[in-house]
Amino acid sequence: MKTRRRSPRRSESSGLTTFLRVARFGTLAAVAFGLASCAIAPSSSRYPMKSDARPHHGVAKAHRLPIHGVDISKWQGDVDWASLRKAGTKFAFIKATEGGDHVDSRFLENWHGAKRAGIPRGAYHFVYWCRPAHEQAAWFKRNVPADPDALPPVLDVEWNGQSVNCPKKVPREQALAMIDVMLREMEAHTGKRPIIYTDITFHKEILEGEFTDYPFWIRSTAAEPHERYANRRWTFWQFTTTGRVPGVKGDVDRNTFYGTENQWRMFVQSACDPRDYRRLAVAGKCLPLDPIQTASIDE
């Protein structure tokens, strides 16, 4: 068989075609690899400027949720709220009071800083089990502004075995009664149904089956919430205490909201978990929703 010799021009054209095909394949492969990387580490597209000093595979699901935030106290030092917002922070819970005579030394600085930066924020009270509930509620009301733009307040309930003055636990009935008083007083002060923050131990010993009409913010840093909390639906999840976010030096607690961006808008507007809105709104427990700015509760 005779072999036809190709002209130099055709040979160059063929080589160029091969090169373009290879280059195109390389580009598509790079895109595919990038998409695969996002699937493996989805947090990069949700909150791209954050990280974790000690990440745990057990809470990987938290990174796939769209609404992320932080909780802040004096231990974070000077906070650059503008940088926090720019990094993708959607909310912040700020320590305000503890017991009946302690105010976080940076509360008002953080409270006003977050608002100036446009970050929705709520104040939290840390319960001191050796102080009467009505005194703690009065202290909270005295020191936390009733800002209509704020997120619902948070009641932080956990045992504090490391406390020098009050490491003891109280009986379950007493703890529940104290919590009930403070929740009602905080709601009266702010006009919004409070959020209950708790950890695994306190929930198991005190809160299982209780306060089902309240949104829960739960701590679980090594597993998904359903693995640690029996029959507890959560609204917020604190999934690490070693987070890193621009605007905060060193470790910061990172948290996520359970739902979509639309459900987050509904929560901010109504101060109610969207899953409870229809039922609680009838009882006057939720603020009205703007139907123009929000879609279906289920979206």
Rank of each mutant, 00 (worst) to 15 (best):
G122V: 12
D149G: 15
A133S: 04
W129M: 08
L151G: 10
F126I: 05
P132I: 05
H134F: 05
D149L: 14
W139D: 06
F126M: 05
P153H: 08
C130P: 00
V154R: 02
K141R: 15
R131V: 14
V144Q: 07
W139I: 06
P153A: 08
C130W: 01
K141A: 15
D147K: 14
H125L: 04
P153E: 07
H125C: 02
W139P: 02
P152T: 09
R142Q: 15
Q136F: 02
V144R: 07
A137N: 03
E135C: 01
K141F: 02
A123G: 14
G122E: 12
V144Y: 03
H134W: 05
F140S: 13
P148A: 12
P148M: 11
D149W: 08
F140G: 12
A123D: 14
K141Y: 02
W129Q: 08
N143M: 11
A150N: 12
F126C: 02
P145S: 07
A137V: 02
P148T: 12
P153R: 10
Y128T: 00
P148I: 13
G122A: 12
A123I: 14
R131P: 01
A133M: 01
V127D: 00
Y124C: 10
R121P: 09
V127L: 04
P145V: 06
P145C: 07
F126S: 01
